[in-house]
């Protein structure tokens, strides 16, 4: 979970972040998507302001550009040691002086019903992308989380999802941590070029600042031939319905058991209170409880080690 030490190597790897318009959970207003913002955060830590953002969408949509600027607002707080940026001829100190760098986002123009995958694939190939970061699942539209897979399949790249952190990048491969349930992690090495889908447990994104957001460049790019998403045409989108709560159905032959099950108090043990214990007894009870609930991690690990 540390930053890559060899930053020079990391910056040679052309890093791209795919971003999408998010929806705030409570208000439904357009916002940075939570996972995409984490992907951008990861990319900025890795590549600094060399990170380029891409989105395929409809530039005519009123809130889209403003929403995408939210990601550009994250272009700040770069290391001054990265020095003079020859490409743009801007002195680092001067840039720091105006608060942050200048982000760039390419908006691939397409209609909402078009298929983004071919366009994105074409753009990524054209830009010789090596490491593509994105959120696991979009907050708008289909939100299936399928895009990284389809892109990787089309490009013939490796794809990893559920990534919590990137540990290091060299010219050949990226070493990263994949999130497992309950805060656990698994280390993977993935050959470049690859697609990395970032999990919501990745480090929180930096603040989107107004100044850099305003300065960032959004270029509308026409690329390829937008083709409608054929599969999708047959689907029906409807407002999400609340999922029914599963009832505890008791399959029992007699009415008595069914009635009892229906009328019974919920499973909650209802709070056992143990008093008048010595510290040792209390500790015993506590450990017993934790063991029963399989919560003692030390033991779990030593058991796992014993198996090997």
């Amino acid at each position: 979970m540390t930053l890559p030490e060899s930053k020079a190597d990391a910056s040679d790897v052309r890093t791209i972040a795919l971003v999408s318009a998010g929806r705030h959970v409570v208000s439904g207003r357009s916002d940075r998507a939570r996972e995409d913002a984490r992907a951008v955060e990861m990319g900025l830590k890795l590549a600094g302001d060399a990170l380029t953002l891409v989105h395929a969408g409809d530039p005519e949509e009123p809130t889209l550009v403003e929403c995408l600027r939210g990601y550009l607002g994250m272009y700040h707080g770069f290391d001054m040691a990265r020095g003079f940026d020859m490409a743009r001829g801007v002195d680092m100190v001067e840039r720091r002086g105006s608060g942050g760098g200048c982000g760039r986002l390419d908006l691939l123009s397409m209609a909402p019903s078009d298929d983004a995958v071919p366009m994105l694939a074409e753009w990524l190939e054209a830009h010789e992308a090596k490491l593509v970061l994105t959120g696991q699942r979009a907050e708008c539209g289909e939100g299936s989380g399928l895009l990284p897979y389809l892109l990787a399949e089309r490009l013939g790249w490796a794809v990893v999802t559920g990534v919590a952190a990137i540990e290091s990048v060299d010219g050949e491969a990226v070493t990263l941590l994949q999130a497992l349930p309950q805060g656990q992690r698994r280390r993977l090495t993935v050959t470049l070029p690859c697609l990395v889908a970032v999990d919501a447990v990745a480090p929180a994104p930096r603040q989107s600042a107004f100044g850099p957001a305003r300065r960032g460049r959004v270029d509308v790019v026409e690329i390829g031939q937008p083709a409608p998403d054929a599969d999708r045409a047959a689907w029906q989108f409807m407002p999400a319905r609340a999922r029914p709560k599963r009832l505890k159905v008791v399959k029992s032959a007699n009415a008595r058991d069914r009635f009892k099950a229906a009328a019974a108090k919920s499973e909650a043990s209802g709070g056992r209170v143990l008093s008048d214990l010595t510290a040792d007894q209390a500790a015993e009870k506590l450990i017993e409880y934790l063991r029963r609930e399989n919560l003692l991690r030390q033991e779990k690990i030593s058991a796992a080690e014993g198996d090997q």
Partner: peptide, 24 residues
């Protein structure tokens, strides 16, 4: 300057601002 240009509002402050933007 810290908030608008550097984006370094203290954590909870930044969260409050994000909330204000999203939910008023």
């Amino acid at each position: 300057f810290i908030t608008l240009e550097m984006g370094e509002t203290p954590e909870k402050g930044a969260a409050a601002i994000d909330n204000l933007i999203a939910t008023d």
